[in-house]
Every structure is written in structure tokens, then in C-alpha cells.
Amino acid sequence: MKKVSQMRAFGSLLSWLYKKPATVDGLFGFIAPASRGFPKRNSDLCTGCGACNERCSSGATSIADKDAIRTMSIDTLRCIFCARCADICPEGALDFTFKSEIPDNVPDNMYFFGITDSKEIPEISKGIVRHICLSHTIDEQSQSIETTLPLQKCPVCGEILPVSEKFLEVVSQRTLEHLQPDAAEIVREDMKKYLRTCISCRREMSKEWNTYPRKFI
């Protein structure tokens, strides 16, 4: 009896001689829809606040200030696609997606991507293929997703502040939104004076501008 079951086991192994091999055709199997895709930054929304840089656990994001320009970049080769920067971004500027590159005619099921030969790759989705085999394209330079933002200059002394113009704009907007109209009027006047000024100028000009602490109750 034991011999019979042994022979059956050997037979089932041998049956692989005429079965189809288990290895996947072509280079890839399938891409699951849960695959997060690549980070994409909407440059119109990004304020350069640096929250993504604070949250990134792999050190893929970086902020570089040079010549009054702030460059926010993500190194896609270092990115581990955890999407925590997208979660934390206060402006919702970051997104992880393939969506803009996927053609409309691809069916919306689990296996939208079963390549058997390079001929069968849809022309539009070749971009996706190149992105996915990052490890294969060593010659290619690391792709970085960059956004450049002008930095704020102090209107008094001309010193470059470590914040972008857009960030201050958004900050003042948000602050004013939550204030009473009469208080907002005073704050707007104050902000015009000192929000974009550097610290030393603010101290020097405080008497002239009369920006002592106010109480809005």
C-alpha cells in the first residue's frame, strides 16, 4: 500500500513533463490594483512646507534651497511607496498612482496586465513597464519628481527667508478664514507688515509698525 502511494507521488511529479511550466510567460505576472504606483506631486497645490520630508521613512524626499528657489524632490529609486507623505500632506498635493498613464480601454479587473511578449504591450502602457522594471534600467538616471517654488525675500533688508512665498500666502489665508471679520481686518493689516519680514527686521521695525500683542476677544 505504501509503495502504491509512493509510485503515485512519483507519477504526479513526472506528470510535470507534459504539463505547462509554472514560470510566468514574459517578464511580468500581473500588477495588483493595490499596487500604489509612483508618487506624483501636483505642483499647483504644493506649498513647500516640508511635511513630506518630515514623514518620509526612507529618506527619499529632499528639500534644497538655492538662489531663492526651493526645490522639493522625491527620489523614486529610494522611495519605498509607503504613501505616508501622501497621507500627511496638508494640501493633498501628493498622490500615488498609475492612473494618468493607464489607457482607458484596459479592463478593470485583477489582471489588467498579462504580458506574454513585448509585442503585446499596449503602446501607451510602455511607460508603465519602464517604470516597473526600475531595477532593469540601470543606465537610466534616477527619476526625481521635482517642484520648484520661489522663496520669500524680506521686503526690508532683502534677506532670503527659509519659507516659500506660497506657504506664507496659504498661512495667511487659513488664519484669516477662522477669524471674526473685525479682528481679521486688524490681522490682515498686521500680516501685511510683518509676516514676510525677517526676524531681525521685525524686531527693528516693531516700534515703527506698532505690532504689540493684541487680544481678540
Binding site: W16, L17, P21, T23, L27, S118
Partner: peptide, 19 residues
Amino acid sequence: KVNARIQGRRGPLIIVPQS
């Protein structure tokens, strides 16, 4: 080739795909 096929692999290909 036989060894590979029993192991469920393709083995050295007789005709390599175009790509």
C-alpha cells in the same frame, strides 16, 4: 530540459522569444 520540465521550469529555450 527534462530536468527543468519535471521541476516545473522552462529550462533552456529552444526558440527564444523575440524580445
